[in-house]
Amino acid sequence: MPKIEIYTKAFCPYCTRAKMLLDSKHAEYEEIDISMGGPRRTEMLERANGRTTVPQVFIAGQHIGGSDDLAALDARGGLDPLLAA
């Protein structure tokens, strides 16, 4: 399974939604909490082309986007192949 990274903040319902989708796929992921800002937030901004909202999801280094982007990818059948790679 490819490396999955998800940048999150505490009490974020969109983060919860994205994690629930990944959990439903039995995908293991690294959760990076940026609630307090700092260098990991800066890292996210650079990797996500300046997008400031959370979550920001990366699969095998590829920027997927936020919760809605992840759900749309799954709806069109594109998530499972990425997770199987």
Rank of each mutant, 00 (worst) to 15 (best):
32 I>C: 04
68 D>S: 15
32 I>G: 01
82 L>R: 09
36 M>T: 12
56 Q>L: 07
62 Q>W: 01
34 I>H: 02
39 P>V: 12
35 S>T: 15
23 D>H: 12
53 T>C: 04
6 I>H: 00
84 A>Q: 14
40 R>Y: 08
81 P>I: 10
62 Q>R: 14
84 A>P: 01
29 Y>S: 04
71 A>P: 02
56 Q>F: 05
7 Y>T: 05
66 G>V: 08
44 M>E: 04
61 G>Q: 12
66 G>I: 07
21 L>Q: 08
44 M>W: 01
52 T>S: 13
43 E>I: 08
73 L>S: 11
5 E>K: 09
55 P>L: 07
46 E>A: 14
43 E>M: 09
41 R>S: 08
61 G>T: 09
44 M>S: 03
79 L>N: 06
75 A>C: 14
77 G>V: 13
67 S>C: 15
32 I>L: 08
48 A>T: 10
67 S>Y: 02
73 L>A: 10
68 D>N: 15
64 I>H: 03
17 R>H: 10
19 K>A: 04
33 D>H: 06
59 I>Q: 01
48 A>V: 03
84 A>C: 07
29 Y>H: 03
26 H>Q: 15
32 I>H: 01
76 R>N: 15
67 S>V: 12
7 Y>A: 02
67 S>N: 12
23 D>Y: 05
69 D>G: 03
28 E>L: 10
35 S>F: 07
34 I>C: 04
33 D>G: 10
28 E>D: 13
62 Q>G: 01
65 G>A: 09
65 G>F: 09
71 A>V: 15
59 I>R: 01
83 L>R: 05
69 D>W: 09
51 R>L: 12
3 K>L: 15
37 G>F: 04
19 K>Y: 05
49 N>I: 05
68 D>L: 09
25 K>L: 03
22 L>H: 04
79 L>C: 09
61 G>H: 11
14 Y>K: 08
61 G>L: 12
63 H>Q: 15
48 A>L: 06
25 K>V: 07
35 S>G: 11
32 I>V: 13
15 C>Q: 03
64 I>A: 01
75 A>I: 06
39 P>Y: 04
80 D>P: 09
73 L>V: 13
19 K>T: 06
10 A>Q: 12
43 E>P: 05
57 V>N: 01
85 A>Q: 14
22 L>E: 02
61 G>S: 07
33 D>E: 09
85 A>H: 11
37 G>M: 06
73 L>K: 08
79 L>A: 10
74 D>A: 13
66 G>S: 10
1 M>W: 05
42 T>W: 00
64 I>C: 02
78 G>I: 12
36 M>S: 15
39 P>C: 02
83 L>M: 07
38 G>N: 07
37 G>T: 06
39 P>A: 13
17 R>S: 13
15 C>P: 01
58 F>C: 06
59 I>G: 00
5 E>T: 14
68 D>A: 13
2 P>K: 05
70 L>P: 03
16 T>R: 11
53 T>W: 02
22 L>Q: 02
69 D>P: 08
